[in-house]
């Protein structure tokens, strides 16, 4: 039984809830840009929205948009990956603890400071009583959610799933990471451009133009281990590594991190076409969700009609590596 991508939606530092980035990309010069918001009143009434931070509003907006674009009215599962969850409300809660001497703490900020708020709030909004989980594993949070969904399908526990990847970047967290030289200070130097991610995919076992053919997560893999897992993933789909037509690599402009992608592509795909997405969408813990979004969009379009199998490859600090295999049906 296959797992197929029915629809998707994104809110990011590109125009929201559309694919205008293909023809009219929003170009950013600054290393820190917040997401371009949509009109959330079209999705959430003000009374319901009053306790939601930006990340929850975005997660609901992309979820509803993706569901409307699919023929799935109620998913069997809602699964989300997020590196930091509702960090904006977490910061407010922690700041209040510090400023007020651990008194006068506002409950709404506390409620939204837990990571699993995202999937649960989406499910509450949708009135979905199915399987519900939120994964928070730094740079492989989205892939963990995706793998969970994949296994839900494989075991027959779900016939449809709403899978999301959501992360917000607050000024405070950006500043903290900036001290670690995480963000780009000069062209050609270390560091990446920050981004914010909110992506939702509707998956189901009904055949669609794009199949999610495999997901692999690896921790500090050797070249042999990478080769073995990549080969095994392809074989499960009935193909070989040589059948992969193009690679979507998580190059962010960070010279140190990009060397890993150079080595990977040089070893396994020296002559294959390469695509990137982080120059348009920035870096975040769940940016691989953006990579899968871009790959799915390209497979559906007629811009590259010869593409059949594409691989999305990302690594987080050269520790956590992920492979997502998509196939055109």
């Amino acid at each position: 039984m296959g797992v197929f991508i029915q629809s998707s939606a994104q809110i990011s530092i590109q125009e929201p809830l559309c694919n205008n980035y293909v023809t009219k990309p929003v170009l950013h010069d600054e290393p820190y840009v917040r997401a371009i918001e949509c009109d959330y009143k079209a999705f959430i009434d003000p009374i319901s929205a009053r306790r939601m931070g930006k990340i929850l509003k975005r997660a609901i907006a992309v979820s509803v948009t993706a569901l409307k674009a699919s023929n799935v009215t109620m998913p069997d599962a809602v699964i989300t990956g997020t590196g930091l969850g509702c960090i904006e409300n977490t910061e407010k809660f922690l700041s209040a603890m510090t400023m007020e001497g651990e008194e006068f703490l506002q409950p709404a900020f506390f409620i939204n400071s837990t990571h699993n708020t995202i999937s649960s709030q989406v499910a509450i909004y949708l009135k979905c009583h199915g399987y519900n989980n939120t994964y928070s594993h730094r740079g492989i949070s989205f892939e963990s959610a995706l793998m969970d969904a994949f296994m839900q399908f494989e075991t027959g526990s779900a016939a449809s799933a709403l899978v999301g990847g959501d992360d917000e970047m607050t000024p405070g967290y950006f500043a903290l990471l900036d001290k670690l030289n995480y963000w780009k200070k000069s062209a050609g130097g270390p560091g990446a451009m920050a981004g914010e991610t909110a992506v939702a995919f509707v998956l189901s076992n009904e055949v669609s133009p794009v199949e999610l053919s495999g997901v692999e997560i690896l921790f500090k893999p050797t070249a042999d281990e990478m080769n073995r897992r990549l080969t095994a993933m392809c074989e499960r789909r009935g193909i070989s590594i040589g059948d992969i037509d193009a690679i979507f690599v998580g190059r962010s402009g960070d010279v140190d991190g990009d060397r890993i992608y150079d080595a990977f592509c040089g070893k396994f795909f020296p002559d294959r076409e390469q695509f990137t997405w982080k120059k348009l969408f920035g870096e975040s813990f769940t940016s691989p969700a953006m990579g899968m979004y871009v790959a799915d969009e390209l497979l559906r379009s007629d811009r590259k009609p010869l593409l059949k199998h594409v691989l999305v490859y990302n690594h987080f600090q050269n520790k956590d590596h992920s492979l997502i295999l998509l196939s055109k049906c």
Binding site: R51, E100, E103, F104, L105, Q106, P107, A108, I111
Partner: peptide, 13 residues
């Protein structure tokens, strides 16, 4: 009820 908690915090603060 969550708003009630917020109002209690408001009164004290």
């Amino acid at each position: 009820s969550i708003d009630a908690l917020e109002l209690i915090v408001l009164m004290e603060k």
